Every structure is written in C-alpha cells, then in structure tokens.
Computed example of a mutant assay.
Amino acid sequence: MASEFDLHCHTTASDGKLSPADLVLRACERGVKTLAITDHDTVEGYREALPVAQQQGLRLIPGIELSTVWGGINVHIVGLNFDPDSDAMREAERDQLEARKQRSVIIAEKLSKKLRHDIRLEDVQALGGGSEGSELVGRPHFAQHLINEGLVPDMATAFKKYLGAGKAGDVKASWPGTEQAVKWIVAAGGTAVMAHAHMYKMTRTKLRACMDDFVDAGGTAIEVAYGLMDSDQQGQMRSIAKDYGLKGSCGSDFHGPNKFGLDLGVMPQFPKDIEPVWADWN
C-alpha cells in the first residue's frame, strides 16, 4: 500500500540514486506527506533537501541510519527527529565518516590486488554525488566503479565475485557498538529505531538479546512496516514491539527506481495496535 509516512529512504548523500531535491519531489508526487531521509551515517541529505521540502510544503524529519555492530553482526539503527546540529550528532557523523574512510581505503587496496587493476579511491568517491557525502562510499559504489571500468558486466557479478560475503571487498568497518549509536541519537534529542530487524540473520533468542541491549541503551522504536516485508515478518516485528513496549516506525528503504516495484511510500499497512513513532511529534 501507499503510505503518507516514509521514514526510511536514501539519497546520493549515501547510496541512493536520487539527489535529495529529486527525492523530495518524488515523495510529493507519490503522496508522501511526512518524509525522513535516512542516509547512511550522514545527515547531509536532510540538510540539502530541507529548503526544497519547505518550498513544496512537505514535512521533512531529520533522519540518519547509523551502521553498528552487535554480537559480530552488522545492525542498523535509524535516528529520527533529532537536532542535526547538536554536538552528539556532529560527533556521530565525524566518527562514522572516519570509519567509512578507513574501510574504503582497505577495500580499494584489496580489490586492486585481487583484480591486478588499480582501483583509485577518488574515482569511486566521485560516484558518491560530489558533495561532502561523496566520502561516504560503500560497496555499491565500488561495484559501479568495477562496471564502469569494464571489469564486471553488472552489479550482481560484482558482488558475487568481489564484494559479497567472504569476498575480497567484504571488509568489516570499525563500526561502533549498537549502544553507542542509540546514545548519540538520544543525546541529540531524537528517537532511536531498530531498523529492519527481520532481515538480520539471528536466532529468535539472539535477536531478543540484541533488543534487550537496544532498549537498555535508550532505544524506543522498531520498524513494523517496511518495504516489501511479508506478513510473517511483520507479525514478528509487531510482537517484538508489543513485548518491549516500543513504538512503531515505517519506511520503504527506497534507494532508487528498481524492477521490484519498491517506491517511496510502499510498505505494508501500519499495525493498528502499535503506537506510531510520530504520535508525540509536534
């Protein structure tokens, strides 16, 4: 269904295909009334989009998706409705940018050695949008560079051969613990949301342990309506929300037009028995 709220999406400030301005215009065309741009580890997308959103009459919420590690597993925490200029959020952006820089250097070195082809990091960064966020490159940017260099025919091959799990370009960044990300968001006056928890390869027991730590650190919401999640997955997230007394958030996780039909505002219907994260926003 189409939702008027989309609180999880990406722009060229991280790994999205549309510029912040174009994303806002698309959201308006799609009937989205309240939007949060949650680029990976940066608030630049929000900052760039805000004037356009104000001009279009779209309610734009400050957002970010922070990369973290819990129990050796990459876990993403979405921050919503915080002060983007707070010391805590500026610190989060600085620390995450440094972690991404270090990771990118290692990926470039490993791919260069594996392919016996000079992978220049500045060329990969040029694919990141050309703004401050261009330094926030990830594996999709490396994959696109390999395509541009004629080293692989498509994105799927790039990940299958060089960037997927266990391959040369699968480099683990020195991300902070999940608790640290939650504390940054809370200190910035925002709401910490457990992102797409149904996608983590955890046992039920391990996921509950992760949620225990998330809540203890100050996390207060979980995504209960997300992109193309199925009814079983949504039921699991709804149960967690109820068991922990968490509010629910929603989002498409839109990165750009794709063949699967996922677009801004596309997600399952929001559960009626879960309090939405926006309930107490002014």
Rank of each mutant, 00 (worst) to 15 (best):
M1Q: 11
S3N: 12
F5S: 09
D6I: 03
H8M: 08
T11C: 00
L18T: 13
A21D: 02
L23F: 08
C28K: 07
E29W: 13
R30N: 07
G31R: 00
G31D: 00
T34G: 03
A36D: 09
T38V: 04
R47K: 09
V52W: 13
Q56C: 05
I61K: 13
E65V: 02
G72S: 08
V75E: 02
V78A: 06
G79Y: 11
F82T: 01
F82E: 00
S86E: 01
A88T: 04
R90N: 01
E93D: 05
R94D: 12
D95L: 15
R100L: 05
K101Y: 09
Q102L: 04
R103Q: 15
R103S: 12
S104D: 05
A108C: 10
S112V: 04
S112Y: 03
L127S: 08
G130R: 05
S131G: 14
E132Y: 11
S134T: 11
G138F: 06
F142L: 13
N148T: 01
M155D: 10
V171R: 01
S174A: 08
A181Q: 08
G190H: 00
T191A: 09
H198L: 02
Y200P: 13
M202Y: 03
T203E: 11
T205L: 14
T205Q: 14
K206R: 07
K206Y: 03
L207E: 11
R208M: 09
A217D: 08
G218Q: 05
Q233R: 13
S239A: 15
S239C: 15
D243V: 05
Y244I: 03
G248W: 02
S249R: 03
S252T: 15
D253M: 09
H255F: 05
P257A: 14
N258H: 01
L262M: 15
M267V: 05
P268I: 15
K272P: 01
E275M: 15
E275D: 15
A279M: 11
W281K: 00
